[in-house]
Amino acid sequence: MKGKVVSYLAAKKYGFIQGDDGESYFLHFSELLDKKDEGKLVKGSMVHFDPTPTPKGLAAKAISLPLE
């Protein structure tokens, strides 16, 4: 699924993505496929991810940034 980063707290390594389906997904650095892309996780960045339901809500897994 595609989505847009709505927040990312680099110090805490987490944030949120708004998916194309309108839902909010929890984003964690550990799910970023290329850790070098962390600096690109800023508000408004477009990402691809696997939407995954968890006991705490919806989460983004296997997060990647589109090729530039």
Rank of each mutant, 00 (worst) to 15 (best):
M1W: 04
M1E: 04
M1G: 07
M1I: 10
K2I: 10
K2A: 11
K2H: 13
K2Y: 12
K2T: 14
G3F: 02
G3A: 02
G3V: 02
K4Y: 14
K4P: 02
K4N: 07
K4R: 14
V5P: 02
V5K: 02
V5E: 02
V5A: 01
V5I: 11
V5H: 01
V6M: 12
V6N: 06
V6W: 08
V6Q: 10
V6R: 14
V6L: 13
S7F: 15
S7H: 11
Y8C: 04
Y8H: 02
Y8D: 00
Y8N: 02
Y8F: 04
L9D: 15
L9A: 11
L9P: 02
L9Y: 15
L9K: 12
L9R: 12
A10H: 11
A10G: 08
A10K: 14
A10N: 08
A11P: 08
A11E: 11
A11T: 12
A11C: 12
A11R: 12
A11N: 11
A11Q: 11
K12W: 10
K12C: 11
K12H: 09
K13I: 03
K13G: 10
K13T: 03
K13C: 08
K13N: 05
K13E: 03
Y14R: 05
Y14C: 07
Y14G: 03
Y14I: 06
Y14V: 05
Y14Q: 05
Y14K: 04
Y14S: 05
G15H: 02
G15Q: 00
G15Y: 03
F16W: 14
F16V: 06
F16H: 04
F16E: 04
F16P: 00
I17T: 01
I17W: 01
I17L: 05
I17Q: 00
Q18H: 11
Q18F: 10
Q18A: 11
Q18R: 14
G19D: 03
G19M: 01
G19Q: 00
G19S: 04
G19P: 01
G19E: 00
G19H: 01
D20F: 11
D20Q: 10
D20N: 09
D20C: 14
D20E: 13
D21C: 04
D21Y: 03
D21P: 00
D21W: 03
D21T: 04
D21V: 02
D21L: 03
G22H: 06
G22E: 04
G22R: 05
E23V: 11
E23S: 09
E23Q: 15
S24F: 14
S24L: 15
S24A: 09
S24Y: 14
S24C: 15
S24R: 14
Y25L: 01
Y25C: 02
Y25Q: 00
Y25A: 00
Y25S: 00
L27H: 01
L27F: 15
L27K: 00
L27I: 06
H28N: 06
H28E: 05
H28C: 08
H28S: 12
H28G: 06
H28P: 05
F29C: 07
F29L: 10
F29N: 04
F29V: 12
F29M: 06
F29D: 03
S30W: 08
S30P: 03
S30L: 09
E31H: 07
E31G: 06
E31K: 05
E31T: 04
L32F: 04
L33A: 07
L33C: 10
L33P: 02
L33K: 11
L33G: 04
D34N: 13
D34V: 08
D34W: 06
K35V: 08
K35F: 08
K35E: 09
K35N: 07
K35S: 09
K35M: 08
K35G: 07
K36V: 07
K36L: 10
K36P: 04
D37F: 08
D37W: 08
D37R: 05
D37N: 08
D37I: 08
D37G: 06
E38R: 05
E38K: 04
E38T: 05
E38D: 04
E38M: 06
G39F: 13
G39T: 13
G39N: 12
G39C: 14
K40M: 09
K40G: 07
K40L: 10
K40I: 05
K40N: 08
L41V: 05
L41I: 07
V42Q: 11
V42P: 02
V42M: 11
V42A: 09
V42S: 09
V42H: 12
V42N: 08
V42F: 10
V42W: 08
V42G: 07
V42I: 12
K43I: 10
K43H: 10
G44L: 04
G44T: 03
G44M: 04
G44V: 02
G44Y: 05
G44P: 02
G44H: 05
G44D: 06
S45D: 03
S45V: 15
M46A: 11
M46T: 14
M46V: 15
M46Q: 12
V47W: 04
V47M: 03
V47C: 03
V47R: 00
V47D: 01
V47Y: 01
H48C: 14
H48T: 14
H48P: 00
H48S: 13
H48I: 15
F49W: 00
F49C: 02
F49M: 02
F49K: 01
F49I: 02
F49G: 00
F49L: 01
D50W: 15
D50E: 14
D50N: 14
D50I: 15
D50T: 15
D50V: 15
D50G: 06
D50K: 14
D50P: 00
P51I: 09
P51R: 07
P51C: 05
P51V: 09
P51G: 09
T52E: 12
T52S: 13
T52K: 13
T52R: 10
P53E: 13
P53K: 14
P53Q: 14
T54N: 07
T54P: 02
T54C: 08
T54H: 08
P55A: 10
P55I: 10
P55V: 09
P55Q: 09
K56R: 13
K56I: 08
K56W: 13
K56T: 08
K56M: 10
G57I: 03
G57V: 02
G57Q: 03
G57M: 04
L58Q: 06
L58W: 12
A59Y: 12
A59E: 07
A59W: 14
A59N: 06
A59K: 14
A60E: 01
A60I: 00
A60Y: 00
A60C: 03
A60G: 04
A60N: 02
A60T: 02
K61H: 09
K61W: 07
A62Y: 11
A62S: 13
A62E: 06
A62P: 02
A62R: 15
I63S: 00
I63M: 03
I63D: 02
I63A: 05
I63Q: 01
S64N: 08
S64E: 06
S64T: 12
S64I: 11
L65Q: 04
L65A: 06
L65F: 14
L65R: 05
P66I: 15
P66Q: 14
P66M: 15
P66D: 15
P66F: 15
P66H: 15
P66G: 14
L67W: 12
L67C: 12
L67G: 13
L67Y: 13
L67Q: 13
L67I: 12
E68T: 12
E68W: 11
E68G: 12
E68R: 10
E68M: 13
E68S: 12
E68Y: 12
